[in-house]
Design a protein around this nucleic acid. Structure first.
Lengths: 192, 192
DNA sequence: TTGATTGTCTAGCGATGCTAGAATCGAGGT
DNA sequence: ACCTCGATTCTAGCATCGCTAGACAATCAA
């Protein structure tokens, strides 16, 4: 019995190692550099080992995305908690979101740009993703405005943040004005 | 002299054929299916011919993106022209933008999701891209609000639309509520 | 008609994601 | 201590990718 338990523990450790290594490699050199060969080399196992943990590269991306979603939820809630009043809270939330995207570009890509084979906006959506959305909603429902569905408002606010995050990082929007854009977005969207 | 002119004409025709074929193939089966082999087969030339027109696959994507930007600019201006008053104009503009993204998903990806090797938000940004942004700005500057830089406002509005477009298409936002989200966005962002 | 230039194609390189089948390891019984 | 057998891991290879060198063919000037 103990032997099997140790095996399962080692297996779980190795799975964490794979996800962690994929994430580091992606942040260092971009997702294009995360090949099954390089990844297997870094974890010091052969390629087929990857496929005994994940169906393929997509699932590895998905695993990184879930890890990222959990972290993002924590950071969003921390930022909201540290702020006083609705206005400061929404501003802090927006900054925290964009900050996360800037500091973890590869993880953000795994979550929203790449195909990680994850379901969204439906029943079988993984819990971490639902929770990250919930973290946004918690701080936004108080500024949704009368007669506006908080869920719908959160979707719009999230989409706007997502647009800013992706376009900025892709060089489509000049970075220096990022803060002014954030302020404008918060001022207009939130009902204070 | 005439011989060379015919040659250049044929060459330009073939280049258009490449771009058009890449675009059709991408819309039919996604950009992953647009391989140099499949593309060369469809245009009935060998692979190296592609490289006598474009540096590589990236530039082909870029060419599709520029074509798309030009079309989008036309559609945005048409929608704005057909509307009466600032409110209707902004709503029509937003619908036209999201509509373009829905009807031409592969082209939209070429423009904003994939790496087409194009410069953005700087001097050497290709004209069609600047013009598409200008088309947005023309209709949005009148609703930017006092003391708000129209360019900055357009960037924010654009980012929000981009977020809605990409998240909806990726299955991250439920499609049925698309119109309600658009309305909410216009109502809040635009100063009417 | 010849020679040179231009254009196109065949064939192949290194790299990718993924997998079949061989090789190895280790736990449990004798 | 040794064998057996199942589970685990690896070697080797497939098909496909973007891209390119060098052979071949077509076209022009002389």
């Amino acid at each position: 019995m103990s032997v099997q338990e140790r095996r399962e523990r080692e297996r779980a450790d190795r799975e964490r190692l794979i996800v962690q290594t994929a994430r580091e490699l992606a942040e260092q050199q971009g997702w294009d550099a995360v090949t099954t060969r390089r990844l297997s080399e870094r974890i010091e196992y052969s390629q087929p080992v990857l496929y005994s943990h994940f169906r393929g590269k997509r699932e590895i991306i998905g695993a990184v995305a879930l890890q990222g979603a959990a972290e993002m939820a924590v950071e969003l809630r921390a930022a909201a908690r540290a702020a006083d009043g609705p206005r400061d809270r929404v501003t802090a939330l927006a900054r925290a979101y964009l900050d996360f995207a800037t500091r973890n570009p590869a993880v953000y890509d795994a979550m929203f740009q790449l195909d990680g084979g994850l379901a969204f906006a439906q029943e079988d959506t993984p819990e971490p993703l639902k929770d990250a959305f919930a973290a946004l909603l918690e701080s936004l429902e108080e500024v949704a405005g009368d007669g506006v569905d908080p869920g719908l408002f959160t979707e719009v606010f999230w989409a706007a943040l997502h647009g800013l995050a992706t376009l900025t990082r892709a060089g489509r929007l000049p970075p220096p004005d990022a803060e002014r854009r954030t302020q404008l977005l918060v001022d207009r969207l939130a009902v204070l």
